[in-house]
């Protein structure tokens, strides 16, 4: 173990900034967040970073460590290459200060998701088989670190897409609801028209950075794309709907349903 760690931490705000270098004695077993905390306590009290649980469970301390989105609390210093460690804020979101970004985009998208809408609860409670909920449980592991959003190139370098694109975090939320055995809501037209599911070109960058190892692309986005395509473009389904006069829910109807 080297005797000293060198950290290059981005400091600044929405008007601009630069990397500042900090040198500290190395300590055994530390994660990046530990070193940031030591910088705060001894050299730069106002160095801004988010963190809560320091155990990989809350998803607050996302940052780009040596250029890769990671949780600072789960990145061990001794597993990074030797030499200076750079820590920068997530690039896809506007800077508030230092490592803290304005992630309100995500909370706005969350409001657009039509909620879970189950049938009335039967006497004795709902029954669901474990096998039928396991896929949904995979998506529920999401800790909302927003690193999948950060790395998604539909919005990473295209601010203009944010107005009509939900992003991987919310595609797994939609998938969780769409695959919930009890849900009665239909969100497929909403996904197609407003949430920009078609913009995802399945490069799997989101899956690569997910700290919960959720298979975002394979298990959520691709199945959703199939469902949306089936609903919107499949001629047999169209014929069936026309004959049976079953109309698709409009995005607004889907959003209103279940509130």
């Amino acid at each position: 173990m080297a005797a000293e760690v060198v950290m290059r931490v981005w400091r600044g705000d929405s008007s601009g900034g630069a990397f500042a270098e900090y040198r500290l004695p190395a300590q055994e077993g530390e994660v990046v967040l530990d070193v940031v905390h030591r910088i705060q306590a001894t050299q730069a009290g106002d160095l801004a970073c988010r963190w809560n649980c320091k155990a990989g469970k809350c998803g607050s301390c996302s940052a780009e460590i040596n250029g890769t989105p990671r949780l600072m609390c789960m990145t061990r210093m001794d597993q990074l290459p030797e030499g200076p460690v750079t820590v920068a804020p997530m690039r896809t979101f506007p800077i508030i200060r230092d490592l803290v970004t304005d992630v309100s985009f995500n909370f706005e998208v969350a409001k657009q998701v039509p909620p879970f809408a189950p049938p009335p609860r039967p006497e004795g409670g709902y029954r669901m088989a474990q096998v039928d909920i396991e896929r949904g449980q995979e998506f529920c592991k999401c800790i909302e670190c927003f690193m999948c959003q950060d790395v998604c190139h539909v919005i990473r370098d295209h601010e203009e897409n944010k107005a009509h694109y939900a992003g991987p975090r919310f595609f797994i939320r939609f998938a969780e609801l769409e695959m919930h055995p009890l849900d009665t809501n239909d969100r497929r037209e909403l996904l197609r028209q407003r949430e920009g599911l078609g913009l995802c070109n399945i490069t799997k960058c989101c899956t690569e950075v997910c700290p919960e190892h959720i298979k975002i692309t394979d298990n959520a986005i691709i199945p959703l794309k199939e469902r949306v395509v089936d609903a919107a473009y499949d001629p047999v389904a169209w014929l069936g709907r026309t004959i049976l006069r079953r109309r698709k829910a409009s995005p607004n109807e889907a959003a209103a349903h279940g509130r």
């Binding site: 909620p115 879970f116 189950p118 609860r121 409670g125 709902y126 029954r127 669901m128 088989a129 474990q130 909920i133 949904g136 449980q137 529920c140 609801l177 919930h180």
Partner: peptide
């Protein structure tokens, strides 16, 4: 909570 969407682990007969 379950009626609001929580997915608890299940018993063999489908209960929580």
């Amino acid at each position: 909570l379950e009626a609001w969407g929580a997915l608890f682990d299940r018993t063999a007969d489908g209960r929580i």
